[in-house]
Amino acid sequence: MILIGEDLNVMTGEISRVIKEREAGPIKECVAGQTKNGMDYLDVNVGPVKKDPQGTMEWIINTVQDVTDLPLSLDTTNPVAMEAGLEVCKKKALINSASGTTESRETMLPLAAKYSTDVVLSVINDAGLPADADERAASIMDSAAFANELGIPNENIWVDPVLLPIGVDQRQVTSYLEFIQMLQDLLPGARSTCGLSNLSYGAPRELKSLLNRTFLIMIGRYGQHSAIVSGFDQELIRLIRGEVPEIVELIYRAMEEEDLDLSALSQKELEYAKTTQVLMGKSLYSHSWLEV
């Protein structure tokens, strides 16, 4: 599993401030920390950068590359900033992100073709977010065909099925699972990614990581190629790197077995088993899913 560290993000106030003031220290610290924790890629989320998109992007990418050799995922909705970033990236970059919308087809996808980069392609299109797995399939087939025509091969496309918060719409989580299993048949060679933290948006703070970790193991089993995750979630990193095989095994069993015997499990195992069941859609989500 390719892990993309999400922590360099303009949405966190501190990063927003230091970008504005061109203060390299905190950025370097954030980058070094995630690199040390074993991320494979780093996401650089600068938002829409309305002011000086070119200069800002160049500065931040160079600052990041001063302290890491990792490839970067460039996260901006501004095509001018995106192109400026691609110009200075030393390694093959990942454009985060394009979609099937007309605007994205006209601005982001041509950049992926021009610079032969990888590109995140979400299932969103002009009609919005598809309602289920089949609609996701139809949407991505259409957008990928368009990308192929521009000269972007499937291997450069990282499909984002779009993960919604489980507390908002549990069925969207189960259709994600359904869709990710179909993906290799739909688009052979294509990769996949998702914004994992979105899953637990709105969930109790102390339980967010449990949801994220469990889901990542589940989708990994279904062939998920990568995910954008917190580069500082040590427990998630240990789990995904195979350091806790018994928990991974348990999650697999909870995915398969209809009537998993919960009585024999330790407290920690019980938490993973219940979380898996709720993520599989076997029981209705509520914030207190561990208490039933």
Binding site: G167, Q170, L284, Y285, S286, H287, S288, E291, V292
Partner: peptide, 14 residues
């Protein structure tokens, strides 16, 4: 909201 309905029931049933 079905999720919140469940949530409140869980809390009550304690």
């Amino acid at each position: 909201d079905a999720n919140l309905t469940k949530e409140l029931n869980i809390a009550l049933c304690k």
